[in-house]
């Protein structure tokens, strides 16, 4: 199931705190067309508790999540079709 995807844009929110974590993700997604891929790098804890859920709530699809280093995760997100820019 882990087919390769081409990442169109990357955003690193490991140094940000809520709510700027999701705000940065939202801004990054705003600059993409639906179907484009965004890679989000985030920390375990507060960001993991809020960001994936907010991405899902706004109609985007999380394709893949993997731990890239101790406590740091990478989310591969496909921008949703209905999502408002």
């Amino acid at each position: 199931m882990s087919e390769e995807v081409n990442v169109d844009k990357q955003v690193d929110i490991t140094k940000d705190v809520c709510p700027f974590t999701f705000v940065k993700v939202k801004i990054a997604l705003d600059g993409l067309d639906s179907g484009n891929i965004l890679e989000v790098t985030l920390n375990k804890g507060e960001a993991m508790k809020n960001v994936p859920r907010s991405i899902k709530d706004e109609g985007h699809k999380i394709l893949k999540i993997q731990e890239v280093s101790e406590g740091v995760f990478s989310l591969i997100v496909r921008k949703g079709a209905q999502a408002t820019a």
Partner: peptide, 10 residues
Amino acid sequence: CTLCGICKEV
């Protein structure tokens, strides 16, 4: 399931 661990986290 990709065993991402979000469920355990939240």
